[in-house]
Amino acid sequence: MKPALILAGGLGTRLRSVLGDLPKPMADVAGKPFLWWLLKQLENQGLRDAYLSVGYRHEQVRAGMGDTFGEMRLHYIVEEEPLGTGGAILKAVAEIPGDDVLVFNGDTLAVVDLAAFVADAEATRADVALAVANVSDATRYGTVEIDDARRICAFIEKGRNGPGLINAGVYHLRKAALADRPGLPQRFSFEQDFLGRFIDEIHLSAYPGVSDFIDIGVPDDYRAAQTRVPALIAGR
């Protein structure tokens, strides 16, 4: 299995009333850090190396998670200053071996068969494959539009009512597609400044194999995560 990169440097601003100064990936979910549940899902599916991109209170993340998680080795890549999702990924891929990497948001959990996801990404020869979830109400999310070949042709800003495909925060990234892209600043958004900006120049493929999805980024969903996340992991 490919190495994993987890974006675990978030400030958790929208959860500050609940978490205080705790880093968002360390938010307590049913007695364990949310990051614990995400790593457990990856370990269950055979991943053996996880790289954690950390920033805010990174010492607390490392102290809480250590250097191993079951069968997995944990590696830490520290942002000395906020780099945005794109800057964090660009910094990290320089330190991760191999040509490809699986990238995960540190505040979402998507239930997806990673072996099937990787096989599909390789079959389509995508520069970036994106796992997408079909939700009944996409109002608080940006949505993804795809063509008949599952190639991503547009990203739509949040606010559209009704059902839709949303970014589930899981990517299969061909490292060279990002690392060899000229003109990127040190700090940038992976979603807007890379995927959105270069949508006509890179091959973006959608993988609609997400069977469930939760984002702990707002208090209501964080409260729901206390029961939903353990149920999702136990069901794997």
Rank of each mutant, 00 (worst) to 15 (best):
201 E>G: 10
9 G>N: 15
85 T>W: 05
22 L>F: 00
172 H>Q: 01
192 Q>N: 15
75 H>Q: 09
88 A>H: 00
24 K>N: 03
144 V>A: 06
198 F>Y: 15
134 N>T: 11
108 T>G: 10
110 A>G: 13
221 D>F: 09
207 Y>F: 15
121 A>D: 05
41 Q>P: 00
206 A>T: 05
41 Q>H: 15
142 G>K: 11
150 R>K: 12
59 E>Q: 15
92 A>D: 04
10 G>Y: 00
228 R>K: 14
38 L>F: 08
108 T>F: 04
228 R>T: 10
44 N>Y: 04
102 L>I: 09
146 I>L: 10
147 D>Q: 08
104 F>S: 01
133 A>G: 08
194 F>W: 15
110 A>W: 04
194 F>D: 01
99 D>G: 14
184 L>Q: 08
129 A>H: 08
98 G>D: 12
28 D>W: 01
30 A>N: 03
118 V>W: 09
71 E>C: 08
212 D>H: 05
81 E>Q: 12
133 A>L: 04
227 T>L: 05
65 M>C: 03
208 P>Y: 08
221 D>L: 15
115 A>R: 14
54 V>G: 05
175 K>A: 07
236 R>F: 07
118 V>G: 00
178 L>H: 02
151 R>G: 12
187 R>D: 06
99 D>S: 14
229 V>G: 02
142 G>N: 12
21 D>F: 03
139 T>P: 00
218 V>C: 08
131 A>K: 09
19 L>C: 01
137 D>S: 12
196 G>S: 10
143 T>W: 03
19 L>T: 04
210 V>A: 11
34 F>M: 03
53 S>W: 03
227 T>M: 06
209 G>I: 09
197 R>I: 07
94 A>L: 12
128 V>C: 12
103 V>Q: 01
121 A>I: 05
31 G>E: 00
41 Q>G: 13
36 W>N: 01
210 V>H: 01
14 R>E: 13
194 F>K: 06
33 P>A: 01
30 A>H: 02
230 P>Y: 00
176 A>N: 06
88 A>W: 04
162 G>D: 10
56 Y>W: 14
109 L>S: 07
152 I>D: 06
147 D>K: 08
135 V>D: 03
203 H>I: 04
23 P>Y: 01
145 E>M: 14
1 M>P: 09
136 S>H: 14
164 G>M: 07
72 M>A: 08
191 E>Q: 14
184 L>V: 07
3 P>H: 13
87 G>V: 02
151 R>N: 13
36 W>L: 03
148 D>P: 04
203 H>E: 13
40 K>V: 04
1 M>G: 10
46 G>L: 01
